[in-house]
Computed example of a mutant assay.
Amino acid sequence: MTTDYQQAREALGVRLRELRMSARDGRLTGARLALLLGWSQPKISKLENGKQTATPEDLQAWADATGHPDAYGELLARLKGFESHIRSWRRRLAAGHQPVQQAIAAEYERSAVVHGFESVTVPGILQTADYARSVFTRYAELQRSPRDTEDAVRARLRRQELLYDGTKRFNILIGETALRALICPPAVLAAQLDRLAGLVGLDTVALGIIPLTASLKIPPTGGFWIHDDRLVMVETWHAELWIDDADPIALYLRTWRTLRESAVHGADAHRLIADARRTVLPL
């Protein structure tokens, strides 16, 4: 959890405490407010001390119970302000993977230039249906989210139509590990590598692969995606970060450019893909 996020959550907690202390019918104790709301007293404490993220329903109930129903709009705006940056997978996947894919696709449609990096998996924008199906199935098991695999696959594949839009540019770096990681059956990975080979040379896609033997100026970490100069998306195990501050965006772009110095393109990238395919599933 980032410092900015935690500070914003604590600031919301301070505001909730202010509303409780200035309740219309007189100061409310935490125990009394918990009784009115039918909550446990620890929940009141956690919300006020920034230890738990409130839901919109929590905020509405708090505003009503303290006699400040007009404060709900302000509280909701605070919540949306910091949740727009860190989006819990638990909440985002509550309705399955398809809505998440549709939200991501909307950002791709808005973007003219996309810079992306993935170290150990083939990026979603380049995945075959079978590869995507394996990924969605495994993540649904991990996150215990609704199984809407086929809808999610269709949504992901529709996004790939943007690869053929001449007004867009995709600058994508992949670690060689992604060419060999068996997160799917070997035959599926072989077909995925054929797909990648076919994208080398596409005029809207600059596909670079960082060889395992490359000299690296910085150690690569998790993947990230930069949309123009307005947004960076970073996936972690617990959440998806949406970063729209200028300085961090500039840092991610510098990181991408530094990683690119270790990548190979064109014929050399094609050779790495072919070598990996022969290893995964010999012809």
Rank of each mutant, 00 (worst) to 15 (best):
T2I: 07
Y5P: 02
Q6I: 14
A11Q: 14
L12W: 00
V14K: 15
L16V: 01
R17H: 12
R17E: 08
S22M: 09
D25P: 04
G26R: 06
R27H: 11
L28V: 11
T29G: 10
G30M: 07
W39E: 03
S40G: 14
I44Y: 00
K51R: 15
T55S: 12
D58M: 00
D58K: 00
L59I: 02
Q60H: 11
W62C: 00
D64G: 05
D64N: 13
P69I: 04
D70N: 10
L76F: 06
L76R: 10
I86S: 13
I86R: 14
S88C: 10
S88H: 10
A94T: 08
A95F: 04
G96H: 04
Q98A: 14
V100S: 03
A103G: 07
I104D: 08
A105Y: 07
R110D: 11
S111I: 12
V114R: 03
H115I: 07
H115P: 01
V122K: 00
G124F: 03
I125N: 01
L126Q: 05
D130N: 10
Y131G: 03
R133C: 03
V135G: 02
V135Q: 11
F136C: 02
Y139I: 12
S145F: 02
S145V: 08
R147H: 13
E150A: 12
E150R: 08
V153R: 03
V153C: 07
L162Q: 08
Y164L: 11
Y164M: 09
Y164G: 08
K168G: 03
K168Y: 04
I174S: 03
E176W: 05
T177Y: 08
A178P: 09
R180S: 12
R180G: 08
I183Y: 04
P185I: 06
P186S: 09
A187P: 10
V188N: 04
L193A: 06
R195E: 14
L196M: 08
G198H: 06
D203Q: 12
V205N: 09
L207K: 05
I209T: 03
T213R: 13
A214Y: 01
A214T: 06
L216N: 03
L216I: 10
K217C: 10
I218F: 07
P220C: 09
G222S: 14
I226C: 04
H227E: 00
D229W: 02
L231N: 08
L231T: 04
V232A: 01
M233D: 09
M233C: 11
E235H: 06
W237Y: 13
H238G: 13
E240I: 10
W242K: 10
D245M: 11
I249W: 01
L251D: 14
Y252N: 09
L253W: 00
T255A: 08
W256T: 06
R260F: 02
E261Q: 14
S262V: 06
H265M: 11
H265D: 14
A267E: 15
A269H: 06
L272A: 05
L272D: 01
D275Y: 05
D275L: 13
R277P: 05
T279E: 15
